[in-house]
Amino acid sequence: MATRQQHRPSGHQGEAEFQWHTGVHHPTGVPDAIEFIKVYKAFGANHVLQGLDLGLPEGRISMILGPSGTGKSVCIKHMVGLMYPDEGDVLIEGQSVPSLPDDELFEMRKKFGVLFQDGALFGSLNLYDNVAFPLRQHTEKGEDEIQEIVMRRLHEVGLGDAIAKMPNELSGGMRKRAGFARALVLDPKIVLFDEPDSGLDPVRTALLCELIKEVHAENGGTYVVITHDIMSARRVAEHIAVLWRGRIVESGPTAELLESENAFVRQFLSGESHGPLGMD
């Protein structure tokens, strides 16, 4: 996998709605674990991804930032093969996801751990069984070994004392941490977070961000966080890609993005009301 070029022109540069989409990609010096190549996706008349070109570097915590309804969650679903592009390609470590047959797709998904927006815990299983589920499903490990792994992961996210609780007895933050523990239990190479901060108060958001950083420092791997929360991005991200109207405006290491001259990127990362992004 080659490091991406510095400038990636995105299709219809002349169109007024894409005037801020410079497609600049500041080099990271590491190969991309996840690549979107000219991806288009529409739901009826709603064109969500409009020629998305995106590379997310291996071994880093990347954030896909963008306003609501701009296609961030759709990106995650494309990465794990829950959705397929109408046009274009999605590569995971060089492997094209849309062209994988079902059995290889299920195999490829073992590389992933996914934290869904509300944790997506199975309502009929208690916390312990939820976290143990992937191990029972995909490994031949005995119950003793499973217990050791599950308890380690649950202690890591601070839920070691809540193993018998059912998902409906957990708060939003606890459900997310439980989902995080379940996402990590198979030691995945890539962990995806779909708006981990949604519905959380600022303090719990900060704590969850700290947890993501700590776990990444300990386990390594490629982490991709989808969010529109700038504070989370500043706290956690090593690499940022700004997504708007189904295309990347600009992407690169966090320090360089925070210094960007692009008016849209500057407005979005500083959270100001004046700039190219309005209420429309």
């Binding site: 073992k110 509300d118 309502g123 499903q137």
Partner: peptide, 18 residues
Amino acid sequence: GARKIREELDALQVLGVD
């Protein structure tokens, strides 16, 4: 439907369950 809305069905697929 409730499982779909809570993304449980997506989670199942990601965990390799058909």
